[in-house]
Design a protein around this nucleic acid. Sequence first.
DNA 1: TTGTATGCGTTATCAT
DNA 2: ATGATAACGCATACAA
Lengths: 338, 338
Amino acid sequence: MNIGEIARRAGVSRSTVSYALSGKRTVSEATRQRIQAVIDELGYRPNATARALREGRNRTLGLVIPPARGRLTFMQLEFVASVTEAADRADLDVLLSSSGGDHDRSFERIVDGRRVDGVILMEIRLDDPRVRRLKALGLPFVTIGRTARPQGMCWIDVDFATLVGRCVNHLADLGHRHIALINRSTELVASGYGPAHRAREGFADAVARHGIDGMEFCCADDASAGETCVQEILRAHPEVTAVTTVNEAALPGVQRALEDAGLNIPARFSIAGVAARFWAEQFRPQLTAADLPAVDMGATAVDFLVERIAEPDGPPRQHLFVPPISLRNSTGPAPAAR
Amino acid sequence: MNIGEIARRAGVSRSTVSYALSGKRTVSEATRQRIQAVIDELGYRPNATARALREGRNRTLGLVIPPARGRLTFMQLEFVASVTEAADRADLDVLLSSSGGDHDRSFERIVDGRRVDGVILMEIRLDDPRVRRLKALGLPFVTIGRTARPQGMCWIDVDFATLVGRCVNHLADLGHRHIALINRSTELVASGYGPAHRAREGFADAVARHGIDGMEFCCADDASAGETCVQEILRAHPEVTAVTTVNEAALPGVQRALEDAGLNIPARFSIAGVAARFWAEQFRPQLTAADLPAVDMGATAVDFLVERIAEPDGPPRQHLFVPPISLRNSTGPAPAAR
DNA sequence: TTGTATGCGTTATCAT
DNA sequence: ATGATAACGCATACAA
């Protein structure tokens, strides 16, 4: 069923049907109703593909997620859901692409074929080839996370440096003098993953500012790595009384290792970090942490992208999220000794 | 950059360029190379929208997910990721639609506008209006879960009845005589949600078969509901020594309540169920459970859909997943008394 | 208030 | 081995 058939049956021209539908020029009430009757009867709906071809836009945005083999984090998954809902509110569809590393076929398909009007790029690297690609194509995009040179680009990010710094402040104020950072994986750091780098920097700065002892550990994004990591910390650095972390997926293992070591939280050991609320509340006792604002971030990313699509040469918008640290029960005064 | 421009610069017709690219008719090596050179130089890529209009298909499938306000479960999220990857392997894109209940705008957009060649429908109800819609449109689709009348349709599902039955068998074999089922929420049951209904049936059958005492409790999909639910069970039915559940999101609360009641697992209380592996492993001690095979399910759903798109009138394929129950450490012999 | 004609970028049919 | 041309379904500039 197409617009021509509707026109024929209603005894009008195609343009009249089109205008009756779009309202972009006046159509007499009589013909409008006749047309509508035919449309209702035949259940006609305009073909979105033809419209996209004609209009030169798809009313669709691309969402590039990391390949699932590296297991999506809870935070990422919440973000995907919130982007989908925000897009829906703007009457936009979302074309999903799982890409990253060498697995970029779907990214190419979506971008090369101009299937989308703009792209939201998750899990950006400090130097990201996909960003260069999008720039070269002149396709509007928003990144989640910043590249090394984010000037002139549209992005949103979480201020991991500041947040980790605040965690250190908090722990130092409680008297802790030997603090460990449990960062993301070595591979992630090596590949230039911003959050890991900025967590490191924020940690180093804060530790230096307080003149206390800080050490960093990389840790894969899973529970058993977290367990091993804490065991290693306790073994090699018995003086450590507190940990700060940006690795939410490691938390269950962190908890286990501390329990097994008989270290009561927060009486004998403190921990604070940055994590999705889900993980913070899952921790026992609940974790003092900056909750990652996934829903806000998704909505903001869509807002920025929609704005940029409408006005590609407008000023690039950027937002650094600094969510408050929720004081829960995992931090307390440093114990006299361990 | 379009195919006409390439043709002009290569000094050939548009059809020659098209054929050179598709290989659907022979093109002399000389012109092929000349064309390729121009393409490489100008970075030409065919416009997917125009191709879709011409070919009458989009090489895209729709994935309808439940609205995120009800928080996507891990299982659902894993499924989304696996569908995306399976689609990518088949060179298909995935258009995401979050719909369900009254929030069906994006479903309409995708389906009415013929933006997709087929649809994967998650979280099906026993009587689902979207299924009727897709049938009426003649759009190929695969459902995750079955409707009440699944004959003639393409679907995959998890055999909750059998799995819950097996959990009961296992617990009965261990000597438990008073077993509770922690099902999904009252609302979900009321709305005709298949897994909840079939868990109930499987439970009732198994309990009757063993001639033991079984009782069912509905429980919202979150930790605190799980906690309340277990407290209620322990209070009202102190004779209960084991629980089986299909409510993974309630597990953290279940655990908390049992801990608070001082009921050691599995010495004084046993629990077995159906859950994503993530949740089973998160439980302490690790949960004896049938792990939901999200990745297999995603791949299978895509396979079925691709097949159906290619051959809309072929026999509808169906698969009932009965994943093995992984024996972990949450079940043991019934205690003498409680 | 309505109709006619054109083009969006492809692919495929027919012709050479 | 290659070219000209007609669709695909829609929106809109131009006419009337």
